[in-house]
Design a protein around this nucleic acid. Structure first.
Length: 569
RNA sequence: UGACGCGUGGCCAAGCGGUAAGGCAGCGGACUUUGGAUCCGCCAUCCUAGGUUCGAAUCCUAGCGCGUCAGCCA
């Protein structure tokens, strides 16, 4: 039986449905064409989900294609990381892995075709001169003196360009369109430039390389792409995309459709800035959990499912979209709620001594790994019964609780521990605060309590209400662990929109490293395992655990907290 | 003030002439051995101004605002 997955509709989907219904296309073929010059970020995830997602939804396919027409900027390292990230996101392309560079010969042939049909010419002007001739947004450009060169001369010159007879930048091949076009992209755009650089795949076979506007449409057509989906900034290029396909012998004419790219608030997305964050050691690397790269989200603990769900949630439109990270966090919680076993971890330990508890007595407390509602969700989502369903946690005379869970002089509605107050230690006992030990500065360093033997398991046989339930860890059995908390990398919604330099807007509290104590079972957790630390959030074991000599946990996203909101007021 | 595109609540986003879905955020409440989850309730007349129409977010006109484009980058 197939599961009905009703994904929200959008304008691109509507176009495809219509094309299929009308018979314009029998199948849908898309492509994801990154330039291998950097790491993929969350913005790319949108393009990936749209291209691969739509193809999958309509039973078509999406080609993996590297747009490697600029040898000066591209590296093999990136073609690997990009494929890795896309697979991690959950998409595959089978045999359909292509490189734009594989078609260099075809592009060249078609360029000669353009020359022979009088649609392209070799330009001798320098880059600056070309710019001067191009005109401005409000003034038309002027024709180049070489614009009306004869076909034979153009052909000869172009062949010699390929043969390496001219130095870099000496000449270019331009399309002969319209220097007076109101669309700057149509003012005789450059098709080929001379550039002696080692290409990561073709080596030194070529010294002329095609431009994106020329190669992309042809590449799409040669791959039989039906719908060429890209972001809004290429809208102005669509007339050129169509011009190329109309003037060159290609098997089909794909339709370019543009959509708004995804922007996340409180971060930056430009490759230059991301690179700078890395090189200046502002972050630890491309996969720093604070980075908006897919590698960063993965390292932090995000699941592919949650990212796909996030992309689906924000939708596809043509209006600039600035998405709040809370939507991502919500998607993560939604995914992990039934998947992540509950555990107890104390991030900022405060010692609690149970004065009426026998010195060396230890009790094993049984704690369920999932609450009932999460168990139901597991059934709904076909996750089956958790294994194990519960675990035993050692409890003793001295334990740690969260510093935030105790207040000497609390405000109203503070349902936690306070002098003379009672609180439930999760699945253990009800304890009452009898006294505290303070240091010279008045800081509470120890809380002394008595426990009620009748409340084993946290139950209250007498029916009394105990509002607060705290998580805890046995002082003797707990495991030391490093806990890393992350906040947005920037302290303003749109760092790029600010007048100040983005580096001045970095949030000084984007990373908080804590030395906590976690329940013993967490000591065996393996890198990549995810948990919900009760009352705190979702965490994943970081790869540093294998070298740090202790467990390192990344907080993926905090739990929603009514108290945090209230306390923040 | 060139061309193209966009403008629905704090952030996204449905809607395609018949009287404003949904999500996130926020607010209030119920419940709770996670102040989690869950559940209830509240939260917009659709950039502005005209016009067409019995009826407009949807059509027309005129404005306003925002984005993109003057790489031998993609």
């Amino acid at each position: 039986m197939t599961v009905e997955t009703t994904t929200p509709t959008n304008f691109i989907k509507s176009i495809i449905e219509e094309d299929l219904r009308s018979g314009k296309h029998k199948t849908v073929i898309t492509r994801f064409p990154p330039e291998p010059n950097g790491y993929l970020h969350i913005g790319h995830a949108k393009a990936i989900c749209i291209n691969f997602g739509l193809a999958k939804e309509f039973g078509g396919r999406c080609n993996m294609r590297f747009d490697d027409t600029n040898p000066a900027k591209e590296e093999t390292e990136f073609v690997n990381s990009i494929q890795n990230d896309i697979r991690w996101l959950g998409f595959e392309w089978g045999e359909h892995l292509y490189f734009c560079s594989d078609y260099f010969e075809r592009f060249y042939e078609m360029a000669e075709h353009l020359i022979k049909t009088g649609k392209a010419y070799v330009e001798d002007l320098t880059a600056e001169e070309i710019r001067e001739h191009r005109g401005t947004l409000t003034e038309p450009g002027k024709n180049s003196p070489h614009r009306d060169r004869g076909v034979e001369e153009n052909l000869d010159l172009f062949r010699r360009m390929r043969a390496g007879e001219f130095p870099d930048g000496a000449r270019v091949l331009r399309a002969k369109i319209d220097m007076a076009s109101p669309n700057m992209n149509m003012r005789d755009p450059t098709l080929y430039r001379i550039r002696r650089a080692h290409h990561h795949r073709t080596g030194d076979d070529w010294c002329i390389y095609p431009m994106y506007d020329y190669s992309h449409p042809i590449n799409d057509a040669l791959e039989g792409v039906t719908h060429s989906l890209c972001s809004l900034e290429f809208e102005n290029h669509r007339p050129l995309y169509d011009w190329v396909l109309d003037n060159v012998p290609v098997p089909c004419h794909p339709q370019q459709i543009e959509f708004a790219r995804l922007n996340l608030t409180y971060t930056v997305m430009s490759k230059r800035k991301l690179l700078e964050l890395v090189t200046t050691k502002t972050v630890r690397g491309w996969d720093d959990p604070r980075m908006p790269t897919l590698a960063g989200f993965r390292r932090k603990g995000y699941t592919p499912e949650s990212i796909r769900d996030f992309i689906e949630t924000v939708g596809v439109g043509k209006a600039d979209a600035w998405i709040d990270p809370s939507i991502l966090e919500d998607a993560l919680r939604n995914d992990l709620n039934p998947k992540a076993p509950r555990m107890m971890a104390v991030m900022r330990p405060l010692k609690l001594v149970i004065t009426n508890w026998p010195e060396d007595q230890v009790e094993e407390v049984e704690v369920p790994c999932f609450p009932d509602d999460a168990l139901e969700l597991r059934t709904e989502r076909g996750l089956g019964a958790p294994e194990p369903a519960s675990r035993k946690v050692p409890f003793g005379r001295e334990i740690y609780i969260e510093q935030d869970d105790f207040m000497l002089d609390p405000p109203k509605k503070f349902f936690r521990l306070k002098p003379g107050g009672e609180v439930r230690l999760r699945r253990a006992y009800i304890v009452k605060c009898e006294s505290v030990v303070q240091d010279d500065e008045g800081r509470v360093v120890e809380v002394h309590c008595t426990y009620d033997p009748e409340t084993r398991g946290g139950n209250t046989p007498d029916g009394r209400k105990v509002q607060g339930t705290l998580h805890w860890a046995s002082a003797r059995h707990g495991v030391q662990a490093e806990i890393r908390l992350y906040e947005p990398l920037f302290s303003v919604e749109r760092p790029d929109a600010e007048k100040r330099d983005y580096r001045e807007l970095i949030n000084p509290d984007s990373l908080t490293v804590l030395q906590g104590v976690v329940e013993p079972g967490l000591g065996q957790a393996k890198v990549g395992e995810r948990f919900q630390f009760e009352r705190q959030g979702y965490f994943m074991v970081d790869s540093d655990s294998s070298t740090a000599g202790k467990q390192v946990f990344n907080r993926i996203a905090p739990l929603r907290s009514g108290w945090a909101k209230q306390a923040g007021k």
